[in-house]
């Protein structure tokens, strides 16, 4: 996949931004989608900045909460600027702006990541720029 997110160039990368087990992807109109790769098949949770069909959610000011099967909030999604805030998912906040990706207090801007499994990997143990694909994830495919 070749994708530019927040001025960062991801070339020949399988997943540009992986937030836990969730792949964050932008389409050509910069609309954000989030795909859960925790189990096969992958589950589309956010489609173009909106809750995907079939996904339970609650409304928020300027966004929404994505819920699990028991009604617990997994994370919040705010549209402008695109911000993903974990609740049940205990990961740093991820924000995507025109010129940067901000994860927790770390800023990524004007980086080129080439040929890695994951462009930016956000996990409980920290952040990695240019990482191999974690095992056990579902396939990210059209």
């Amino acid at each position: 996949m070749n994708l530019k997110i927040g001025s960062n160039d991801f070339k020949n990368v399988h997943i540009p931004l992986l937030w836990g087990s969730r792949a964050i992807v932008l389409d050509k109109q910069s609309r954000v989608s989030i795909i859960n790769l925790e189990s096969e098949p992958a589950v589309l949770e956010v489609l173009g900045g909106n809750p995907a069909p079939g996904i339970s959610y609650r409304l928020e000011n300027d966004g929404f909460q994505i819920l699990d099967d028991h009604g617990k909030c997994l994370y919040y999604f705010y549209a402008k600027p695109c911000t993903i805030v974990g609740e049940h998912i205990k990961l740093p906040t991820c924000q995507i702006d025109l010129d940067m990706i901000k994860v927790g207090r770390s800023l990524f801007s004007n980086n080129v990541v080439h040929g890695f499994g994951v462009g930016i990997l956000v996990s409980e143990s920290g952040l990695v720029l240019g990482a191999s694909l974690p095992p056990g994830l579902a396939k990210l495919a059209a």
Partner: peptide
């Protein structure tokens, strides 16, 4: 205890 689900 509100929740929503978008349909296709």
């Amino acid at each position: 205890d509100v929740y929503f689900v978008n349909q296709k």
